[in-house]
Design a binder for these strands. Sequence first.
DNA 1: GATGAATGAGGATTCATTCAT
DNA 2: AATGAATGAATCCTCATTCAT
Lengths: 206, 206, 206, 206
Amino acid sequence: MNSKKRRPGRPRDEELVTRRKEEILAEATRLFAEFGYRQADVQVLADRLGIGKGTVYRYFPTKENLFFAAVDAGIRALVDRVSASSKDTTDPVHRLRKNIHAYLSFFDEQPDVVELLIIERAEFRDREKATYFLYKDRYRDERINQLMDAMQQGVFRQMPPERVMNVIGDCLYGVIFTNHFANRKIPFDEQAEDVIDIILHGLLPN
Amino acid sequence: MNSKKRRPGRPRDEELVTRRKEEILAEATRLFAEFGYRQADVQVLADRLGIGKGTVYRYFPTKENLFFAAVDAGIRALVDRVSASSKDTTDPVHRLRKNIHAYLSFFDEQPDVVELLIIERAEFRDREKATYFLYKDRYRDERINQLMDAMQQGVFRQMPPERVMNVIGDCLYGVIFTNHFANRKIPFDEQAEDVIDIILHGLLPN
Amino acid sequence: MNSKKRRPGRPRDEELVTRRKEEILAEATRLFAEFGYRQADVQVLADRLGIGKGTVYRYFPTKENLFFAAVDAGIRALVDRVSASSKDTTDPVHRLRKNIHAYLSFFDEQPDVVELLIIERAEFRDREKATYFLYKDRYRDERINQLMDAMQQGVFRQMPPERVMNVIGDCLYGVIFTNHFANRKIPFDEQAEDVIDIILHGLLPN
Amino acid sequence: MNSKKRRPGRPRDEELVTRRKEEILAEATRLFAEFGYRQADVQVLADRLGIGKGTVYRYFPTKENLFFAAVDAGIRALVDRVSASSKDTTDPVHRLRKNIHAYLSFFDEQPDVVELLIIERAEFRDREKATYFLYKDRYRDERINQLMDAMQQGVFRQMPPERVMNVIGDCLYGVIFTNHFANRKIPFDEQAEDVIDIILHGLLPN
DNA sequence: GATGAATGAGGATTCATTCAT
DNA sequence: AATGAATGAATCCTCATTCAT
């Protein structure tokens, strides 16, 4: 499994760096989620980690850099989870269900990541796009193709695939944001079923 | 009618107070939307208004108070718009369409209000509920009843009304947030139609 | 009793001014005692009096002026009380007793005045002498003479009268300050007796 | 003995902390005495010390905290001086004389401390007791016992010891305050003798 | 490499005073 | 005369970042 060639010299150092970065990132995520960007004090982060403030700056040159690294890590974890959820499925409806469940369960487990998304937009308003959507764009064509296939197969109605994708994506995004903004406590799998039901069948009786 | 005895001295001008507050609020909304809460400088606000900083504090005792007044005004305007949109409609489908159009057109015209909602959550993370949802709660029962009526009439399928309401609300919330986070430029009425289409008919062919 | 000649014209105006000043001064004394000089807000003073802030400034050109007027009024009241207390007494011991009782009872009734004395020094450190001592100086010679008479008569021991006066004065000053600084609640007449006892007889057995 | 493992990085220098705090405290005492609490600018303090403002806040988290640290240091120095003055004396009269001389000579040398006491009360009026009296309370029982012994021995008259203690304390407190309020310049040892004379023998001829 | 001491730019808030009404 | 709207000077405190040890 660990197929990287182990070269002689100081291989452990690299690992150390990686491990340290991850530790810092994990704590930083918690800190930002707790205090917001501005109020999150790098000194507090260092204290919680039991290291010096300078050490944090060794691994992340600025607070902003640290923040975006945390956002990135969070979103990458989300993407991995959602991708994995439908790996062995080709049925469009099943895949959609799996993806929605994975998406909502991820944010249920990692509520801090939602906070990071909000904070990112609140603090870095001048960015063209939030990180989340940069990642999303990468999977755009793949999603579109899957939707078009499903329509071709007659599993979904014929609709503009991009717009369908938007509505589904927006709906899920809205669910997790509302959960946080309204302090809503609904079991995530119930939410998933509610969303799936409406997205698949609509409100009208057939 | 105006039988109040004129007390000596300069009379307090209630209208002036109202006008001033509105002027300040309008500019504050722009400022917060532009810079975020922390970065928004009350001095800059005063400069833009051509008044002294102390004058701002005359009308709003703290920056936080000012911010929440701006949020409140924004949400009240939204509520008014949506309420007005379906005033003379009793048909459930028509009402839903009207409401969704009104909702999206409001945020299309007042994008600053979306920013305020995001900023509120990012900065005041400890509040039980964001202002938006406090307002929403007031209309909860009314909405539920309308949905139940529509189901009774057979216009909508029989479903748990609360959950339906949540999915619709989340979906719309997600739309406006995504518009901002992803810097998405789609005509709001197209978005409205896309959302309405899926919510009413679902993805599956009938 | 009201022996001032009432002249035709607008005599009431003067009275009004005097009355207004006194009302303002009384409330100002309370306010300063409650908040200190810096923290005492002229707006609050006006509000408590039910008048406009500008009106306060009509009667007292600056806050500082207002403060010193309050101090002055307080000290003048003290002086009057103490003077009156020994008006019909010529016996040195009796006069001393009367004066001490009057002094302590005054500050017992008017604790705000003590606060003013403290605040005066704390805020206006550059004054050569606190107002209290300016007033005291006026009575210096009279006091000295009284003490010298008492010594001549053999009622008091022969001592440098100035120094005796200082020790007595300091002692009383210390009593009222300590009452305030230590939040001490002792009936003022007991305190008077304690002070009188020691000042007259000393600690040593005769 | 110094067997602690040297952790990596710059070791925390406790001595430096202590030294810095003392330096800051000394200058702060001067500053507060000169300007009062409100008017004392932390920036000026930093400038006088030739350090950054942030450094002051590194050692004292708030201006208030800094002020009380200064008060505390001042009073502790007083207590030490007075305690030391009568260490090898058991004779009550001698001890009283020594204590009074020490007390007055302390404030003669450290007039800034008197200012701090005044400022404390003027600014922090809501405190139950001024710091000075909190310290004094600790020595209360000891003082009472000494007085009772002296009375038992017949060195002092029989009197309520608590009240005697109060009168002596108030008298001294009054002396130092009057010195400052009235800008009085009398050699402190003369003052001591005057106070001692009256406290011991009273005004009346034996 | 790690640490933590030092820094100072940046921004909210208070309140005496002025002056138009 | 009386009022209260407007002003802005004055100051505390936070915290990212640098760099000597």
